[in-house]
Design a protein around this nucleic acid. Structure first.
Length: 299
DNA sequence: TCAAGATGATCAG
DNA sequence: TGATCCTCTTGAT
C-alpha cells in the first residue's frame, strides 16, 4: 500500500533482487507485453524512487516507470519460481528471485528525456538527499488552499499520502483546513523535519508508526491497531474513536475526494488564525510549537 | 456471492 | 467536483 516510503523500499528491494544482472521481464496479464519485451534480457543498472514514482534503468532498454496508485502492489519471492497467479502486469525474474506487479496505475518504459520531465514536475521528496524544502514552502506560502490539500499535491511535495498527511498535521497541532498562506515558516520547517524522520522510519520498517512512547498500546494499556498499514497512529482512520492525547472524538471529512482525519481539540482551526503581524509574534508562536513537537516512536 | 472501499491520479465539465 | 481506472480484501447478505 503505497506512500513514498513504500516506493523507496521497492527501489531497494528490486535492486537487491536483480541489480547489476540480466533480468527476464514478462507480462503474464498481457497488458504490458511490448514494454516487457523492451526490458527482457537486459542488465538492471540502477533503481530509484522520486515521491511515489519508481524508476529502474535497464541498459539499452530505457527506464521502467511504475506508479502504484491506490491499489498497486509488488510481491517478491524466491526460487523455485511459481506460475503467476491473478492479474500480474509485470514479472521480473532471474534464477533466484521474482517480483510480480499488480494493479499499478502506471507501468511504462520512458526515455531519458521523459524521465527528466517526470521528475521536473514533482515537488521535493523528503526521502531524497537532493530535496529542497524551500521549493515546497514557496508554493505553500503563496496558496490559499488548505494545508491538508497542499501536502497531498505531488507538485508541492512528493511522496506524502493520506496517512502521513493526517499524522504530520496532528503532530504539528495544525488544523488541516488552515490556508497555506497562514502556515508559519517555522511550522513548515517542523513538518518537513518530522516527515523526514517518520518516512525514514517507514523505509526501514515498512510500517507507518507515528505515536510517541507515551501513546503506544503498551503505555496506554489499549489493544494494538490491526489493519492493513500495520502501524500505530493518532488520527488516520480513527474517526469516531477517542484522541490518544485529549480524549476528544476524532473527526473525518472528505477533502478533494480523499478522507481527512483530525482531532478537533488538538489541531487548531484554520479560520481563527491570522498572519503574523510582526516577526516577534511569529517567533513566539513557533517557539511554543517546536517545544511540544513529539518524537518518532523508538522501537 | 456480491458490493464497497482503499495509502492515487487524471480528465471532463 | 464527480467519474473513472486499477486489483484485492473485507464484511454484509
Amino acid at each position: 500500500m503505497p506512500e513514498g516510503h513504500t516506493l523507496h523500499r521497492l527501489a531497494n528491494d528490486v535492486w537487491d533482487a536483480f541489480g547489476g544482472r540480466v533480468v527476464r521481464a514478462s507480462s503474464p496479464q498481457g497488458r504490458f507485453v511490448d514494454g516487457a519485451a523492451l526490458l527482457d534480457g537486459r542488465v538492471l543498472r540502477h533503481t530509484e524512487a522520486h515521491g511515489k514514482h519508481f524508476l529502474a534503468d535497464f541498459e539499452g532498454g530505457g527506464w521502467l516507470h511504475i506508479h502504484l496508485g491506490l491499489i498497486g502492489k509488488v510481491d517478491f519471492g524466491s526460487a523455485p519460481i511459481p506460475e503467476p497467479v491473478g492479474q500480474v502486469r509485470l514479472r521480473l525474474q532471474n534464477d533466484a528471485a521474482y517480483a510480480d506487479l499488480r494493479g499499478a496505475t502506471v507501468c511504462e518504459v520512458l526515455t531519458d528525456g521523459e524521465r527528466e520531465a517526470l521528475i521536473g514536475r514533482l515537488g521535493p521528496d523528503p526521502l531524497r538527499d537532493d530535496a529542497d524544502p524551500d521549493l515546497a514552502w514557496k508554493r505553500i506560502q503563496r496558496s490559499k488552499l488548505p494545508i491538508g490539500r497542499l501536502l497531498m499535491d505531488q507538485e508541492v511535495l512528493s511522496g506524502v499520502g493520506n496517512v502521513y498527511r493526517a499524522e504530520v498535521l496532528f503532530r504539528a497541532k495544525l488544523h488541516p483546513m488552515t490556508p497555506g498562506n497562514l502556515v508559519r515558516k517555522r511550522e513548515w520547517q517542523g513538518m518537513w523535519t518530522d516527515l523526514l524522520e517518520l518516512m525514514k522510519y517507514g523505509v526501514e520498517t515498512g510500517r507507518i508508526d507515528t505515536v510517541t512512547d507515551d501513546h503506544t498500546p503498551e503505555a496506554m494499556g489499549r489493544d494494538p491497531r490491526r489493519d492493513d498499514h500495520g502501524g500505530e497512529v493518532y488520527v488516520y482512520r480513527r474517526h469516531g474513536q477517542h484522541c490518544h492525547v485529549c480524549d476528544s472524538v476524532i473527526r473525518t471529512e472528505l477533502l478533494a475526494g480523499r478522507n481527512l482525519f483530525w482531532c478537533p481539540k488538538c489541531q487548531r482551526t484554520g479560520q481563527t488564525r491570522k498572519p503574523p503581524a510582526t516577526p516577534a509574534r511569529a517567533s513566539r508562536a513557533s517557539r511554543s510549537t517546536a517545544a511540544k513537537k513529539p518524537q518518532v516512536k523508538k522501537l
